[in-house]
Each structure stands twice: as structure tokens, then as C-alpha cells.
């Protein structure tokens, strides 16, 4: 028994060691470089900074290019919040009706949902459509794009979760005189809260971290998002590695906070489908 416990601790210790080298060193590198002065940071090694300039670098990176990063944070927040709200409401409505009502439309809707998950969006034709309706390079256009591309994943989660809500509940509400809108928004949607939280967290992280979408559909510096700003920062400010890594560090904080607060829901969202395909 003692040998077994020893082995357990030993493998644990080895695993911790490996995880430090493989996973923690890159993050330590980001944080340490972000805290250094520019000449020290340009060595790009893992040494401790001779002077911790964490706050100074935060201020500097914020002020770069006329508070570009601050504006990018505002843009990314607006984009993330509105597109996630839009996609959650629309997807919940579809997932709900799709699960509750069996009609001849259902197989077709299911195929469309799966197609939305698998088919890569056609980039230039999407730009062409956006230009035609006058939404190219605008924040509303980008919001609609993110909401559309996230729909399928959300619908699948909602459809699976609606099936766990007893149908008798709907019937009781209807008998009490609730119309379809009230039934959905006041009875069903509140009961979907766990899956709503999951969807919101997973999609918020996805939209916030999205680079390809804004690169194609929201070019230009007016509405730059944090990912675009980071990408441009890399090519524009050479030899300011400390600020570059401070930028990476800062834009990692929102998803990290999300993860710490909603750990359980993220895990639930990512693993749905793992137990029953």
C-alpha cells in the first residue's frame, strides 16, 4: 500500500514537472517579458526583470497609437456582448421549436444546422453580400456575422437541453393562458438558464478571440478589435517586445476571468456530446 502511494505521488510529481516545462514556461515568459524594460525584453529570455515595470508597461501599451488598445477593448466588448445575446436568443428559439414540434421541416432544419457547423464560410461572397446591404466594415455587420456563424453550435446545445424540460410544463402554462411568446420567454427560457450560461461563456470566449472574422469583415482601424490590434502591433512596433507581450497578457485576462468564474459551465459546454454522441 505504501509503495502504491509513493508511486502515485511520484507520477504526480513527474507530471507536474512536465506540465511546468510544457505549459507554464510559455505563460511565465509572457508575464516576465511584459514586466521588463524594452532593452531587457529584447533579450527574449526567461530571466527575472531587474526592475518590475508591470504598471508602467500597462500605461505605455494603452497609450500606444492614441489609445488604440483601449478603443479595441471597447469594440471587442460591444461586439462580443451584442453578438452573443443575439445568437443566444435566436438559437434558443430554433432549438426549442425544433425539439418540441415534430414536422416535416425538421429533417431539413437539422441538415442546415449541421451544414452551418461543417461548411467553411465563403469569404469573398460574404463580403459581397455585406457590401450589397451596406454593412461591410461596420460594427453591426460584424455583429451579425459572428451571430450567424455561432448559431449552429448553440442550436445543437439548446435542442439537447430542451428535451430535458418536461412538456407538461408547457401544457400547464398554455392552460393558464400563456401565448407562445410568454411561454417561451417567461417559462422555458428561464429553465434553460444552465445551458444559456454555458453557451454564453463558450461563445463569448470564441468571439472575443476571433481573428479571422474581423480580419475579413471589419478591416480598418476605426473598429479594430483586440485580436486585430495585437496582430498589427506585432508588425508595427518592432523591438518593443515588452509592450507586445503586455498586449498579449492584457487580452488574455478577460477569457481567463471567464474561465475562473464559469469553470463548470465551460467544461459542460465543451464536453456535451462526449458522453452520448
Amino acid at each position: 500500500m505504501k509503495a502504491k502511494a509513493l508511486r502515485r505521488n511520484l507520477t504526480g510529481a513527474v507530471a507536474v514537472l512536465v506540465s511546468i516545462v510544457v505549459f507554464l514556461v510559455p505563460f511565465a515568459f509572457i508575464v516576465l517579458t511584459a514586466a521588463k524594460s524594452a532593452p531587457e525584453a529584447s533579450l527574449l529570455d526567461l530571466s527575472l526583470p531587474s526592475e518590475w515595470l508591470l504598471w508602467q508597461n500597462v500605461v505605455d501599451v494603452m497609450q500606444t497609437r492614441d489609445y488604440m488598445l483601449v478603443r479595441a477593448f471597447v469594440n471587442s466588448t460591444v461586439l462580443t456582448v451584442t453578438s452573443v445575446v443575439l445568437m443566444v436568443v435566436m438559437a434558443a428559439m430554433v432549438g426549442y421549436v425544433l425539439q418540441r414540434r415534430s414536422s416535416r421541416w425538421n429533417p431539413m432544419v437539422n441538415v442546415l444546422v449541421l451544414a452551418g457547423l461543417i461548411v467553411p464560410p465563403a469569404v469573398v461572397p460574404t463580403i459581397w453580400v455585406l457590401q450589397t446591404i451596406g454593412l461591410f466594415k461596420t460594427m453591426p455587420g460584424m455583429i451579425f456575422i459572428e451571430a450567424t456563424f455561432g448559431l449552429s453550435f448553440c442550436i445543437l446545445l439548446f435542442r439537447a437541453f430542451v428535451s430535458t424540460i418536461p412538456k407538461e410544463l408547457d401544457e400547464a402554462a398554455v392552460i393558464d393562458g400563456a401565448g407562445p411568446l410568454r411561454l417561451f420567454f417567461q417559462v422555458v427560457l428561464p429553465l434553460l438558464k444552465p445551458v444559456v450560461v454555458t453557451v454564453v461563456v463558450v461563445q463569448a470566449v470564441a468571439v472575443f478571440n476571433d481573428f479571422t472574422g474581423p480580419l475579413y469583415f471589419l478591416p480598418g482601424s476605426d473598429n479594430a478589435t483586440v485580436q486585430l490590434t495585437l496582430y498589427n502591433f506585432q508588425s508595427q512596433t518592432l523591438n518593443q517586445w515588452n509592450l507586445l507581450f503586455m498586449n498579449i497578457f492584457l487580452i488574455t485576462i478577460p477569457p481567463l476571468v471567464m474561465y475562473i468564474v464559469f469553470n463548470r459551465q465551460i467544461v459542460a459546454g465543451m464536453t456535451s456530446g462526449a458522453v452520448k454522441g
Binding site: V97, T148, L151
Partner: peptide, 30 residues
């Protein structure tokens, strides 16, 4: 009748419009 119309098909419409305009049309246009 009330139970059936409690799941109105028009609930598909908002998502359907976005899907059609920003995903299906570009895909076919491509």
C-alpha cells in the same frame, strides 16, 4: 390547437433570415 401553436414555426424566422442572408446566400454565390 393551443398546444400545437405554442411552438410557432415563425420562431425559425430570425435565425433563418441571418442564416440565409449571411451564410446560405454567400455559400451558393461562391
Amino acid at each position: 390547437r393551443p398546444i400545437k401553436s405554442s411552438y410557432p414555426t415563425w420562431f425559425y424566422i430570425p435565425a433563418g433570415v441571418f442564416y440565409l442572408v449571411l451564410f446560405a446566400v454567400p455559400t451558393f454565390a461562391s
